[in-house]
Each structure stands twice: as C-alpha cells, then as structure tokens.
C-alpha cells in the first residue's frame, strides 16, 4: 500500500496544509509519497521532503503546470496513479478542482473532505453543512480523497527524504490561464492563523472592517467574513468562512456582527474558543459561543483594541 499526497503550494512556497494532509496519509498507513506539480518548484519540493513520514517527493516541474490547471494536473496524476492505493489532496480550491477529475478518469468514486481516518477504507466526513458526520467505507480498489486540513495536525519535521525529478509534462489544448487577481495581505492566512476575527453584515461597509485591523494586529489574527459581508462587497471572496468558503479551526475565533447561520457555523464551529459580539441577544451565534458579548460592535471594538 502506498499513498500519494498532492502538495499544496503557491508562489513557489509549500503551504502548511500539506503537512496536515500527510498526517491523514500516515493514519491510512503504508509508504507516503508527495507529488509536487508546478513550475520553478524546487523550494516546494525541498520543504515537502522535510515533512515527517514522507518517503519520497516526486517533482513535475514544467511551464505546463505553472497555474495548476486541473486538466493538466489531472492527466499527470492519472499517469502516476497505478503505483498508489490512495491519492490525497487538500480540500482547497485547487484540490477540489483537480481531484474529482482524476477520480472520474480512473473510474473511481471520490470521498470528499474527510475529517477522520477510521482505517484504510473507512473515513469520517461532514455532510449537510456539518450537521451530521457520516462514516463511509469505500469499496474502490483505489481511493481518491480530499482532506479537510483543519481537522488534522501538521506532521513534524524529519531529515530530508529522497527527491525524484520526473520529466513529465501534460499540456491540454482545452483551457488556458488568463490572469489572476491576488488578494494582497500582510496578515497570516485564514487556514493557518491561530486567531481569526471575522466581520459580518453588521459591519455595514468595507471601511468599517478597519475596526478589526488593530485587534488583528495585536492578536496576530487573520481576518475573515460571512457570506453577507462578501456578497455586499465589503471584502473579497477569499475571506468568506463557511460551508462553501474556507473552513477554519483556530484556537480563538471572534465573530463580530455575524448572526450565526448554519452555513457560517459549518466553517468555524470546530474552533477551540469562540467569541461572539452581536447586539441581538437572540442571535444563533451565541448558541455556539464560549463567550458572548451583547453589545453594539461600534462601541466595543475600539474598547477591545485598547484592552489588548
């Protein structure tokens, strides 16, 4: 049994999700290999080689993989697939885009967004916006799986393992990269931050999100948002936390002016400690909050910043 983990990377850097997906791979058992597909990704490969439990890193470095288009990456993974019993990727937008394509090309049913490994065939995964946890057993000979990284601990470091360079390139004629609009931020990423502070519709506009900045600076926090705040154009889409946005599980989650709809809770209710600030004492967010403050956010946010 051998498990292949698809490395998650951006701007030539390995992303922290990868060490968490390797943790899931180690729980499944067998040899673990990591595939790095991209362009100019030597640093990514070297970082992946340091993740404890990884036996080998395989690198496909080619201009064809620069933008990680699903059509090209899926063909690459399928080319390598026969050596592996399990193929895992993070349930990031890249993993979600690519892995079902791989799965169908291999004629396998995929298991999406697992949060637990019971054994090599059996996994736990949330369904219905996390209102139920299903245990599923895959009878496929080869298992294609996406992993909710926030549900797994990162593997520690090891001495570097072998790095193998593959001279493979797949270039489909069907799709082409046009452009990217990258959200620039000095803050930690939502999925990696120990503290997340999120604003909702109660923030009223984009400028008011600045009220969260000082607090985030003091706590080393990432800033998130509800769907309503994103839809209203207060903040960019990549800040959305929830069932269909980012899933976070920080030590501390602070929800400000967020009502606590099922879909929002699905993205943050596994946080260790939850704080809610809302002027409506009946807001459902208080049902999951460890500490609730019933107050006008415009009064208390400056106070909170000063008190930290």
């Amino acid at each position: 049994m051998s498990v292949l983990v698809i490395a998650e990377h951006e701007h030539g850097q390995l992303k922290p999700e990868t060490a968490k997906v390797v943790n899931a791979a180690v729980a499944i058992g067998g040899d673990v290999e990591v595939l790095v597909a991209g362009h100019n990704v030597a640093d990514v490969a070297n970082s992946a080689a340091l993740i404890a439990g990884v036996n080998k890193v395989r690198v496909a470095d080619s201009a064809a993989f620069e933008h990680q288009l699903a059509e090209n990456t899926a063909d690459l993974i399928v080319e390598l697939a026969s050596s592996y019993s399990h193929i895992l990727a993070s349930a990031s937008t890249t993993g979600k885009n690519t892995l079902p394509r791989v799965s169908a090309l291999l004629d396998k049913s995929q298991v999406s967004e697992i949060v637990g490994v019971v054994d090599a065939d059996t996994f736990k995964r949330p369904i219905y916006a996390g209102n139920a946890i299903a245990t599923v057993k895959s009878n496929e000979s080869q298992k294609v799986i996406t992993v909710r990284a926030s549900a797994f601990d990162a593997q520690v470091e090891q001495g570097a393992c072998e790095v193998e360079n593959l001279s493979l390139s797949m270039d489909n004629a069907l799709s082409a990269f046009v452009s990217v609009e990258q959200t620039e931020s000095e803050r930690p990423e939502l999925n990696a931050a120990p503290v997340v502070i999120s604003g909702g519709r109660g923030m009223q506009n984009g400028e008011n999100f600045a009220l969260l900045n000082g607090i985030a600076d003091k706590l080393g926090a990432a800033i998130g948002a509800s769907r309503a705040a994103v839809d209203a154009g207060f903040v960019p889409n990549d800040m959305q936390v929830g069932q269909t946005g980012k899933i976070v599980a920080p030590d501390l989650y602070i929800a400000v002016g967020i009502s606590g709809a099922i879909q929002h809770l699905a993205g943050m209710k596994d946080s260790k400690v939850i704080v809610a600030i809302n002027k409506d004492p009946d807001a459902p967010i208080f049902q999951v909050a460890d500490y609730g403050l019933v107050a006008d956010l415009f009064d208390v946010l400056p106070e909170l910043e000063a008190a930290l």
Binding site: K108, S109, V111, T122, P126, I127, G130, N131, A132, I133, A134, T135, V136, K137, S138, N139, E140, K269, I274, P281, F286, Q287, V288, A289, D290, Y291, G292, L293, V294
Partner: peptide, 19 residues
C-alpha cells in the same frame, strides 16, 4: 461503490457564558 456505515450528530459545544 461507497457504503454509508453510519451517520452521527457532530460533537455538541458546551453552552457558553454571556460576559
């Protein structure tokens, strides 16, 4: 191809406090 073994409620959060 995939069996549903069981479905459970997610872990409940303890009720918190209002400060």
């Amino acid at each position: 191809r995939i069996e549903l073994v069981k479905v459970e409620e997610p872990a409940k959060r303890e009720a918190g406090v209002i400060v």
